[in-house]
Design a protein around this nucleic acid. Sequence first.
DNA 1: GTCTATATTTGGATAGAC
DNA 2: GTCTATCCAAATATAGAC
Lengths: 198, 198
Amino acid sequence: MPAPRDRRTERYAATRREILDAAWDLVRANGLGSLAMRDLGARVGMRAQSLYAYFPSKFAIYDAMFAESNRELLRRVSGMASVRDPIKALRERARIFLVFCVEEPGRFQLLFQRTIPGFEPSPEAYAPAMDALESAADAIRACGISDARAIDMWTAINSGLAAQQTSNDPGGDRWVRLADEATEMFLAHYAPARKRKA
Amino acid sequence: MPAPRDRRTERYAATRREILDAAWDLVRANGLGSLAMRDLGARVGMRAQSLYAYFPSKFAIYDAMFAESNRELLRRVSGMASVRDPIKALRERARIFLVFCVEEPGRFQLLFQRTIPGFEPSPEAYAPAMDALESAADAIRACGISDARAIDMWTAINSGLAAQQTSNDPGGDRWVRLADEATEMFLAHYAPARKRKA
DNA sequence: GTCTATATTTGGATAGAC
DNA sequence: GTCTATCCAAATATAGAC
């Protein structure tokens, strides 16, 4: 089907978008766990109940947020394909990931800390996360690293930096600025003997 | 004051203790964020309202849990003072920390992920955490590391391993088993040139 | 110190009119 | 598609009797 341009459908999609934007605003302001249907409705000029015309439940909203966050992360790291030098690429990838996490702590919490009681992302929402992880594994292999443990170490280091940054120095850069050093440390340990920077 | 043995005071303290134990049970069963005064009361054979005779608010309960968790962590890492070899001591310390985090994910969440909307630990509850951190800094310095950034990197690595473990492989050991390797990687990067294990 | 009773707030969700 | 009206449930917290 060629998806006929349907004004009604377009309007509907636009409102869904508006609701999600409002949800991010609220999460930014009050924290992920404090998102409430009432507030959300108020923010888009609706009663809370009307939101159910767009999302079947609150978790469905979280799920949509989860999905679009993962897509965004995937989009950003995919933009890295152009960088030739694999070492440089890995370093840049770490920076991108950290910026992504730190610029929106609620998003980081949603994606990586699983902190909302009862919420489990749907497989569809989760899928791009696996692509992003696979892409990270590729980048690591491109540096000549084949050790399977390295990828787990890599995710631990970078999510650890992000977590410390958001919970112990929100708004600052005390941990984010360690990104390059962390990558260097990681490479020194896992990459087959390579020249050190003088 | 020699704290006169007062049966009433003792009973009171015992009940507080009982309430906190029950709270940990519930957190273990339902997750940190789902702790509810009703359930808690039921678990100790009281109405929820009666709990207010022992704690002025729910946050006060979280605060007490926060405080005793930090004391417990401090206690465990302090037991390390006896280990002579500083490298061995650091390695052992990482393992202790990881076990501490992984054996009680709700505790990890409470202490390090700051996930309960509105809850801030009191300074008294937080104090032992700073002692534990100071103790970690000592252990790192004992390995000949003076770089101030190293301590931040150390906390990021270890809390990162703990977070990945609890949220992506709960009950398993996929990240915990990387502890020694992480310590090795850390030392190789920060410690003044030292003999590698053949 | 624990209870009953109740206040208060909050939040998710449904039914049905328009 | 949005509203009013409601429901229902859960949760924190207070007042006052016993």
